[in-house]
């Protein structure tokens, strides 16, 4: 019985994780970014093939877990090459990610990159920080290191 319970618990956690990485269109993502919120939105664009993205990911996880004033969203841009999101789902499970994960379901980067940020050429890792209360936003397309996110968040206060 104990084992069964453990199994059921494990399975339900697993099921919840699998739920987290939903496919999203760029217009839905734009709405999520712009929706008035008490929290500062930290949106990181990454892909499973991007080594610096994976290296900096623990910073985003830690930020989301430790700061109630911040909402972290990790947006995978994997689907431009491989239309199958399974690789991303597996990655989210393996890394036990606690942040909200979306998989961008768009085909033409020449269209969707501008919708998110005009100054962005599409290089990843990239991070957008939005404070809907002050109307300020900041964007960086480089790998972040310990302490960088906190400084960027201070810029949008």
């Amino acid at each position: 019985m104990k084992y069964l319970l453990a199994f059921v618990l494990t399975f339900s956690v697993f099921a919840l994780r699998a739920q987290t990485a939903q496919l999203v269109k760029v217009d839905q993502l734009k709405q999520l970014i712009e929706k008035p919120s008490d929290q500062i939105q930290v949106i990181n664009f990454w892909a499973t093939w991007c080594a610096p993205c994976i290296k900096e990911m623990p910073l985003f996880e830690k930020l989301g877990q430790s700061r109630p004033d911040v909402a972290v969203t990790l947006v995978s841009v994997d689907l431009d090459l491989d239309r199958n999101p399974a690789k991303v789902h597996k990655f989210v499970e393996r890394k036990k990610l606690t942040s909200t994960v979306y998989i961008l379901d768009e085909k033409d980067p020449n269209v969707w990159i501008d919708v998110i940020e005009k100054s962005w050429q599409g290089a990843i890792p990239a991070t957008l920080i939005v404070n809907t209360k002050t109307g300020k936003r900041t964007f960086v397309d480089k790998e972040l290191h310990e302490g960088d996110l906190e400084k960027l968040i201070d810029q949008v206060r």
Binding site: P52, I113, D114, W120, G122, I124, K142, E143
Partner: peptide
């Protein structure tokens, strides 16, 4: 002018 997903230049 076009845009595409790529790797950031390692500054």
């Amino acid at each position: 002018k076009t845009k595409a997903v790529g790797c950031t230049i390692k500054w």
